[in-house]
């Protein structure tokens, strides 16, 4: 299980990444992930936990990636509970509604917290959703993009309704997470290889028996 070896990107291995999804109630994060996970596959691939927890398998330049997408509750009263959701995350998608200035402020709060908890190891994506409502925009593109840059995050424009920008968002995020993981691996490969130290951070799992490869994902008990 803790089969982290150096040179993990070798054939027969796959990256497993955890991505948390953050955003206020009405920004459309549920639609965003449903779009993403429905597009490639049909309805049946939605897990029985519906939009709360989704998995997706990707192949990026020959590297296999298993994504686990963790939705979080956006309501203010659940904010204190956030940290237990995003510990050990490799990436975070912070969604705001371009027509709602307040939702953008919330994103800023989350960024602060994530950086505080997870440092620079987590790949952040700030996502302005609902670009189909461009006319009602209340968050300026420039402000959002320069903010993202200032905190080391990437900014994306999406429309869950029109299915725009979503595929790119996830693909880009995955590439960045792979890069981070590789840097991490190299650092680990130089140092001592501690078998117990894999609980945190990237896990590279051997998923060669295809029938069982979803083990950690969606098919634990049918």
């Amino acid at each position: 299980m803790a089969a982290a070896g150096s040179g993990g990107a070798a054939a027969g291995r796959a990256y497993s990444f955890k991505v948390v999804l953050l955003g206020e109630g009405c920004v459309g994060k549920t639609s965003l992930v449903l779009r993403y996970c429905e597009n490639k596959f049909n309805d049946k691939h939605i897990t029985t936990l519906q939009a709360s927890f989704l998995t997706k398998k990707l192949n990026i330049g020959g590297k296999r990636v298993n994504l686990a997408i963790w939705d979080t509750a956006g309501q203010e009263r659940f904010h204190a509970l956030g940290p237990i959701y995003y510990r050990d995350s490799n990436g975070a998608i912070l969604v705001y509604d371009i027509t709602d200035e307040d939702s953008f402020q919330k994103v800023k709060n989350w960024v602060k917290e994530l950086r505080k908890m997870l440092g620079n190891e987590i790949c952040l994506c700030i996502v302005g959703n609902k670009i189909d409502l461009e006319k009602e925009r209340h968050v300026s593109i420039q402000e959002a993009e320069s903010y993202a840059e200032s905190v080391g995050a990437k900014h994306y424009h999406t429309s869950a309704k029109q299915n725009k920008g979503i595929e790119e968002l996830f693909l880009d995020l995955c590439k960045r997470m792979i890069e981070t993981a590789q840097v991490d691996e190299r650092a680990k490969g130089n140092g001592s290889s501690q078998p117990g130290a894999t609980r945190r951070g990237v896990q590279i799992i051997d998923d060669e028996p295809q029938a069982q490869s979803g083990g950690g994902g969606c098919c634990s008990s049918g």
Binding site: M1, A2, K18, L49, F53, A68, W70, G215, G216, S220
Partner: peptide, 20 residues
């Protein structure tokens, strides 16, 4: 560890959140 980021991990985390 293998279950930590999977469905089991998510469900346990959610239950813990609800309890808190």
């Amino acid at each position: 560890e293998g279950y930590l980021i999977g469905e089991e991990g998510y469900c346990l985390t959610s239950l813990q959140s609800a309890l808190s």
